[in-house]
């Protein structure tokens, strides 16, 4: 493995890291190292071998992010992982976006070598079918995950409400917080498994998509995905965004 990543993970002992710090580094690596690398290998001067290795790097970078999310996912941490202060609000990615992205990369018309420009021209029926199959699988899996989350939230509310009248009569503020704290803990413990399953789905979708693509197609797809994440953090865009008074303007 090339240096930028291995240097991050090559310590002997497990390293305890603030997730915020991890995310900042992960994002910087994506933006400053891996995105330029894949662009470079998509330009005319690059070799096939380099392209393969950069696709691999970028793919692993995305997968490692979800692995790290899983590692951090505990009952205590989950709420902050779900609603992170280190993200932009508008940056949350959705599984189904990956498929949309793949089908759209076809319209990219940047000045690039012929193989790259042709990578998404005349996409074979076979490939279209495979991508649609992946999307179809997703559309089956996502509602199941959402419904599990919904049930957990309803369970939490039910549990709190059923105890409420009894605690409320005792007028004991501490007891109220204990009961709610317990119910919340239980809900989060179960929600961790939904979260991990959702990450597994994200990983498998990206891997499956890259698996059915050619090297050029995969490179363009991953470039698009990286660009999507990086684009949201464009400082100039964020400034304009903050300034924008009316959503109708």
């Amino acid at each position: 493995m090339p240096k930028p990543l291995s240097s991050l993970f090559s310590r002997k002992k497990p390293e305890k890291l603030a997730f915020k710090y991890y995310y900042t580094n992960w994002f910087k690596t994506l933006k400053n190292t891996l995105l330029p690398l894949i662009r470079q290998s998509l330009s005319s001067s690059s070799s096939q071998t380099l392209l393969y290795s950069h696709v691999d790097l970028l793919l692993n970078h995305f997968l490692s992010y979800y692995d790290t999310l899983d590692l951090a996912a505990s009952q205590e941490n989950l709420p902050q992982l779900l609603f992170p202060s280190w993200h932009n609000n508008e940056e949350d990615d959705d599984d189904e976006e990956f498929c949309g992205l793949v089908l759209d990369v076809a319209s990219d018309k940047q000045r690039r070598p012929w193989q790259v420009l042709m990578a998404w021209k005349n996409v074979s029926q076979n490939l279209t079918t495979r991508i649609e199959q992946i999307e179809c699988g997703l559309r089956l899996m996502v509602p199941a995950l959402i419904s599990r989350m919904k049930k957990l939230q309803a369970g939490f509310m039910g549990r709190v409400a059923e105890n409420w009248v009894a605690i409320d009569r005792k007028n004991d503020g501490v007891l109220k917080e204990v009961i709610i704290g317990e119910a919340m803990k239980e809900e989060m413990e179960e929600m961790v498994s939904v979260f991990v399953d959702a990450n597994r789905l994200r990983k498998s979708v990206i891997t499956e998509i890259v698996g059915v693509l050619s090297a050029y197609q995969a490179a363009l797809f991953l470039e698009g995905l990286a660009q999507f994440l990086v684009g949201f953090r464009d400082p100039e865009l964020l400034r304009e965004f903050e300034r924008c008074k009316d959503s109708d303007q």
Partner: peptide, 9 residues
Amino acid sequence: RKVMVNMPA
């Protein structure tokens, strides 16, 4: 709370 993660060795 600070969210910590144990990175693999």
